[in-house]
């Protein structure tokens, strides 16, 4: 009974603990994808003129792990992850497909010319409908696609060093064949 006067303090400490955790470890902008472990939505898009072949959902289930990167020329954060993608593509371990989200063909082509293209295939989602089918709510987003076209993981925002090490590379090195 002597401890009961501590109850408010303990309650407060509990709440503070939860909030402290939420402040540093939870990001309200990261909404878990509803589509994880589900098949890719069906789509077929034309390539950005001059940059790779057309992209359709068929290309995502060709028996190997692929990256589907949602990008746009108007997206500033895309520039942050661009070197990472270029490096991945240079190593040639994984095919990267670019979903050009709500852009114009000209602007997209110009952007790729200036920054280089890491994409084996590109698809122009001019109206953003394919993006919505994928549950995209901001650019960049990157989907890690399984060999049979299942969405294995989704990285929201620019790919960080940590994402690359913990989420992409283990899948490439371990998930061969």
């Amino acid at each position: 009974m002597k401890l009961s006067f501590m109850a408010p303090v303990i309650t407060f400490a509990g709440i503070a603990g939860v909030m402290f955790y939420a402040l540093f470890y939870l990001d309200p902008k990261e909404i878990p994808s509803e589509l994880l472990d589900k098949k890719s939505p069906v789509f077929a898009l034309e390539a950005v003129p001059g940059y790779g072949e057309n992209l359709s959902s068929e290309n995502l289930k060709e028996g190997k792990i692929t990256l589907l990167n949602v990008f746009a020329s108007w997206c500033v954060a895309c520039l942050a992850e661009h070197p990472t993608l270029m490096e991945l593509s240079r190593q040639g371990k994984i095919d990267i497909y670019g979903l050009n989200y709500k852009d114009t063909p000209d602007a997209a082509a110009k952007w790729l010319r200036r920054n280089g293209s890491p994409y084996a295939r590109t698809g122009m989602d001019l109206k953003g409908r394919v993006g919505i089918d994928f549950g995209v709510y901001g650019v960049p987003e990157t989907f890690i696609m399984g060999p049979d076209g299942t969405i294995l993981d989704k990285i929201i925002g620019p790919i960080t060093e940590k994402d690359l090490k913990n989420r992409i590379l283990p899948r490439i090195d371990g998930g061969e064949g």
């Binding site: 909404i31 994808s33 509803e34 589509l35 919505i132 089918d133 994928f134 549950g135 709510y137």
Partner: peptide
């Protein structure tokens, strides 16, 4: 919408 973006 829920099938694409979740209950959220």
């Amino acid at each position: 919408l829920v099938s694409r973006y979740g209950d959220w």
